[in-house]
């Protein structure tokens, strides 16, 4: 074992892992994060806590992770390289680990252009791959990026994202391989709606044997309505929503569209369970966390293993 991470234990045991996501509030309101955490508590092995997602200011991932930890959940500290340089990132990693947070997700982050502070500079002292390298060096060599020794080095289980749907497609397996070489332990993918394309990517992954070097959790996000599906397709960078999905949701009456969205999710999970190299699911119900338990339950992913 590389860490004490529960997520690592579940994955090593060979069972399908389940992670979910929780966005911190736009204010100093611990109740909001606690309510979301309560919903996910017994359903996910670990819960991502986003870091100024979509470049909008929110309670820090680190602070929100501490609330989750205190409630007995296993938070995954998300960290984007957009807002902090290598000093700030390393000090947060030390702080998080000192609070018992042992799992992270390394990202470059959305551009400030998309958020509520478009005038801010984006730091990008490191990119996501260099962040992975840094966290691995901290863990395995007990050294800061600058080379000095760390007292009680943080043993993080290291995650990153992969988007099989972004361009150029032919590069996306090679990019995963780069993240593996940098030292990533697990991957959470972009939300999957175009299953054929995902399977094509996974074929490229398994052909190179990369699924034996990294755990891949398939990203799942339920659609609330045809409007949301259209928005995701047209407005969210790197999202691939096939027209059939939009049509399927649009074809049922408005009131039933949410149910149809959940149904699609569950079918997707069932199909992906059969795909070689899929080690689990990352279920992100953005501001719709109350639906996560039923998705996990109906997809046959309960009970969660005790490790």
């Amino acid at each position: 074992m590389k860490s004490e991470s529960v997520l690592e234990k579940v994955l090593v045991s060979g069972q399908l892992a389940v992670t979910s996501e929780c966005g911190p509030p736009r204010g100093a309101v611990p109740e909001i994060i606690k309510e979301k955490a309560e919903l996910l508590k017994d359903y996910a092995d670990a819960v991502n806590v986003t870091d100024n997602q979509t470049a909008m200011v929110r309670m820090s991932s680190f602070a929100a992770c501490v609330f989750l930890k205190q409630m007995g959940l296993n938070p995954i500290l998300q960290m984007v390289t957009r807002d902090r340089n290598r000093l700030a990132m390393q000090s947060d990693i030390l702080g998080a680990y000192a609070h018992g947070i042992d799992t992270m997700l390394c990202l470059s982050g959305d551009h400030p252009h998309f958020g509520d502070h478009p005038e801010a500079i984006n730091v990008h002292d490191l990119d996501s791959i260099q962040l992975i390298q840094m966290v691995k060096t901290m863990r395995d060599e007990g050294k800061f990026q600058g080379g000095a020794d760390i007292l009680n080095p943080p043993k993080m289980f290291i995650g990153a994202a992969a988007n099989p749907f972004a361009d150029p497609f032919e590069l996306r397996v090679a990019r995963l391989s780069k993240k593996i070489n940098a030292g990533v332990d697990f991957i959470q993918t972009q939300c999957i709606y175009n299953i054929d394309k995902f399977e094509k990517w996974m074929k490229g992954v398994t052909d190179r044997g990369l699924h034996k070097k990294v755990y891949i959790l398939a990203g799942i996000t339920p659609m609330k309505s045809a409007g949301m599906a259209r928005y995701m397709k047209n407005k969210v960078p790197g999202m691939d929503v096939p027209d059939e999905i939009i049509k399927r949701i649009a074809d049922v009456p408005q009131k039933k569209q949410a149910d149809e969205g959940i149904k699609i999710c569950i079918e997707t999970i069932q199909r992906l369970k059969e795909v070689e190299g899929v080690s689990g699911f990352h279920i992100m119900a953005i501001e719709w966390e109350q639906k996560v338990p039923e998705i996990i339950e109906q997809a046959g992913l309960l009970p969660r293993p005790v490790v």
Partner: peptide, 21 residues
Amino acid sequence: CAKRLLNGPCGGSSNGKCEIN
């Protein structure tokens, strides 16, 4: 690169264009 990624591309690259524009 809008994010000056030394190991890109990010997940927003689409049809040869940058996610921000």
